[in-house]
Computed example of a mutant assay.
Amino acid sequence: MKSVLIEMEKLKNLNSGLGQFCLNLGKQFQHLNIQNLDLNFYLPASQKNIFGENFSYIKQTALHKLIPLNSLKYDVWHCLQQDTPYLPTTNNTKLILTIHDLNFLEKYKGGKKKRKLYQLQKKVDKASVITVISKYTESVVRENLKLNNKAIHVIYNGNSLEVVENTTKPKYITFSNFIFTIGIVAPKKNFHALLPLLQNNKELHLVIAGNCETNYAKQILRMAEKMQISQQLHFPGIIDNATKYWLLKNCRAFVFPSISEGFGLPVIEAMSLGKPVFLSNLSSLPEVGGDEAYYWESFEPEHMHKVFEKGLADFNDAKSNRSIQWANQFSWENAAKAYLELYNVL
């Protein structure tokens, strides 16, 4: 039986996108009939047994960053994200490296950018196989890293939206006409570009879920105050699954003007509920939204308003059903089976 170690450091923060990636993939492994593979989860001590008693668990410690865990007993070592400090100690253990994005290319400049690229290249050199979460990420990897004929596989993320029955409307929702977005509240999400939509419609509200204590969140609040739309902007902070489900289910539209996404999971979650989604036409978003989403080609307020109003007028039951069908192709079952196939063939 082939022994596989799956590195899940990011389970330490279940509210992060990478934390959710690890969690949902592991949960799906629980539900599959896995044969000829012995899966071992390498994760923070706080998450031991998170996927049940049928798997083995290895506790990550700070010491492992100095004295790495011996990988001799493992045939395959899968790192679920590219920034991991935990790598196999021998070339006899085949490394699968999953790369989600290369956002640091835009975030950093000069020496720091070069160091990050050098560190990632070293991991790529060590890997037997590279996996990415979108064709867009694949294109960025091929452009900036030397693969030396290594195989690269696109394995899409799944829709992780938890269906929550009988959800209660949040107390701060005292209006019916609102648009919704969610994510880390950072400049790359470009949420401030949505504010002019509120100026054009005083009955429209915007709910932005995520950490509202960031400098960027405070910048958005200052902009809203200056534009005299503060009463239409709402920052509930980090929300639970039930609240997210209610907001997605009841929003007029999901809006996501992000300028840099490796995948963009909230888009699929919204589409799975048949909601109209409005996205930037940048990075992976056209790939994820397909023909069923509406796209902003610029962030000029008049253009955004025109696309938004035209999209709302165009959206109907048939379009909603097509959005649901499109979203259904992105499943964690499909993702888990694709990874298991890689484990078997290495």
Rank of each mutant, 00 (worst) to 15 (best):
K202P: 02
Y108P: 07
G262M: 07
F21A: 00
N92D: 15
V307W: 05
F104H: 14
E341C: 11
L87I: 06
C251N: 07
T61C: 11
I208E: 05
D38M: 12
G264E: 06
S331F: 09
L11Y: 01
W326F: 09
L87V: 05
N103K: 14
D101S: 13
V140A: 06
F29N: 00
A338S: 15
V141S: 07
E261V: 07
L342P: 01
P85D: 09
I99C: 08
L194I: 13
L18Q: 11
N49W: 06
Q199G: 13
I152H: 06
L97K: 09
S139E: 13
K107G: 03
N177P: 00
K94G: 10
E309F: 06
E287L: 12
N281E: 11
V129P: 03
L340A: 04
S134N: 06
Y216L: 10
L248Y: 11
G262N: 08
L285Q: 12
K27A: 07
S134V: 02
K244P: 07
Y216K: 08
G183C: 09
E9H: 13
S272H: 05
F175Y: 14
V267D: 00
K150Y: 09
N157W: 00
G158D: 02
T84Q: 08
I238P: 00
C22D: 10
Q30A: 06
F55M: 03
S176N: 15
G237I: 08
A253F: 06
Q231M: 03
K94M: 08
L198I: 05
R252M: 13
A270T: 04
K94I: 06
P266M: 09
V4R: 01
L23V: 03
L206D: 04
Q35R: 15
M304D: 02
S283D: 10
F180G: 01
M223D: 11
S272L: 02
W296S: 04
C22F: 00
N281Q: 13
P68L: 13
N190H: 14
K27P: 00
A313G: 03
W326M: 05
H192N: 11
T243L: 10
P187H: 05
F29M: 12
L97Q: 10
E292F: 14
V345K: 15
P68T: 12
P196F: 05
C251A: 13
L105Q: 10
I173Y: 10
H192W: 04
S3C: 13
L18T: 08
D314W: 04
E292R: 14
C251Y: 02
N159M: 07
